[in-house]
Amino acid sequence: MIYHILVPLSTQFGLFNVFRYITFRSIAAFITALVISILFGPRVIRYLTELKCGQYIHEDVTAHQCKAGTPTMGGLLIALALCLATLLWSDLTNGYVWLTLFVFLGFGAVGFYDDYLKVVKKKNKGLSAKDKFLIQTAVSFVATGILLINPEYTTSLSVPFFKNFQPDLGFFYLPFAMLVVVGASNAVNLTDGLDGLAIGPTVVAAAMFALFVYVAGHTQIAKYLQVTSVPGVGEVTIFCASMAGAGLGFLWFNAYPAQVFMGDVGSLSLGGALGFIAVLVKQELLLMIVGGLFVAETLSVILQVGYFKFSGGKRIFRMAPLHHHFELKGIPESKIIIRFWILSILLALVALGTLKLR
């Protein structure tokens, strides 16, 4: 919105020319989202408390029973800050921005309804896993399908560390891309089990993908670094910056001990958006490095459930997802969170290294 108001004035006032630059507007979007989150955070928390949107704690997680009743659905604060900042600073004629917002809000709607059933209607199971998966699949199908309509959009797969190995998935790219989006959404959701545990790595991933989106959208830089160029996608850098800013602002209140939880409305939307952005810039496999922590948490659940069924009741971990395993080993919650954050930063640096190690 600001872009469309001020950029036309740059012909008369040279100072406004700065608003043409994605880098400047990304910084502005980051600050805007951060400020909105911090300013509106107390009001949102107070409102959620008045609505009695208290978090239900599973009886098996005995260490967290003291957190029962902490307001959840704080992802609404993230959505407010992220969407406002993106709409204020983006070029709203860019289709990639609207597609990314569609995925973010679509997955957020699934999470919101799930949270609504659990904390307002007091149905502890919320939306069934089948219904949740079907809606997520539908949203990802529409978004990735629209991408593939563009004849310039390639179905080749970029493989980190290999510049000349780009297999073309052809028809199979659509289900693969949908799997990336839905998988990323649920991976972040599984990670959201400790105060600030999910939002910290999400901020790191958003910041890292802001860089990759900018590179993919800049033809000359993309050519120099030998990454797939996606003309016009650079505008999504502003969305990534908004996500990082909104996430940091939310962390202000979600840090241990948390005043609010993001709920499914936050985790599903953030994960889905990250997955779609990875598809958008042809860095689907890189997401497994940047979001390695989310991958590890998801694999711990898959391995635990699979081994439990195969062995007739035995377990690999004391409890899954992985963060609960470390909790039951006696490691303090705050220490687990900080260590996982450190790991996510290290993984992001590894991902950054793929730009040159090819």
Rank of each mutant, 00 (worst) to 15 (best):
I302Y: 04
A273E: 00
E284S: 08
V290N: 02
F294E: 07
P321Y: 07
A348T: 13
G275T: 04
P332Y: 04
I331W: 05
K314M: 10
V281I: 15
F276K: 01
L293Q: 02
F317L: 13
E297P: 09
F308T: 07
E297G: 11
L346I: 15
F326D: 08
F340G: 12
I336G: 05
K314P: 02
L280H: 00
I277K: 02
F310G: 02
S344V: 07
L299E: 01
A351C: 12
G275V: 03
K314E: 13
A320C: 14
K335I: 15
S300H: 11
Y307A: 09
I336D: 03
G330K: 05
V305L: 05
L322P: 04
I331Y: 08
G306T: 12
I337K: 07
K335Q: 15
T354Y: 03
F276G: 03
A273Q: 00
V295K: 02
K282I: 04
K309A: 12
M288V: 14
F310W: 14
I337P: 11
L280I: 05
L285K: 01
S311R: 09
L322A: 11
P321H: 07
A296M: 15
E297Y: 11
I316P: 01
S311I: 07
L299F: 12
R318Q: 14
V350P: 01
L285Y: 06
I345K: 03
L328F: 12
A296F: 09
I289G: 01
F276W: 06
V295Q: 02
S334R: 10
W341Y: 08
K282T: 03
A278F: 01
G330C: 12
R318F: 10
M319W: 10
S300N: 10
I345V: 15
L343K: 02
E297H: 12
V279N: 00
G312Q: 10
R339V: 13
G306N: 10
K329P: 04
G312N: 09
L285D: 08
I345G: 04
I336K: 04
L299Q: 00
V301T: 12
A273I: 09
E297V: 14
K329G: 08
W341V: 03
F326C: 10
S334Y: 12
I338A: 15
L303M: 14
K329Q: 14
E284R: 00
F326V: 12
I302E: 03
S300I: 14
I302T: 06
Q283N: 05
T354D: 05
V290G: 03
G306H: 02
I316S: 06
I331S: 04
L274A: 08
V301F: 07
E327H: 08
F326M: 11
V305F: 03
F308P: 04
F317V: 13
F308D: 06
K329N: 08
E284W: 02
F276Y: 10
E297D: 13
F340T: 13
K314W: 06
F340M: 15
H325G: 10
K335H: 13
A351T: 08
G313L: 07
L299P: 00
K282D: 01
Q283A: 12
L285G: 06
T354M: 07
Q283C: 05
A348G: 14
A296Y: 02
V290H: 04
I331N: 03
H324S: 09
L286G: 13
L343H: 01
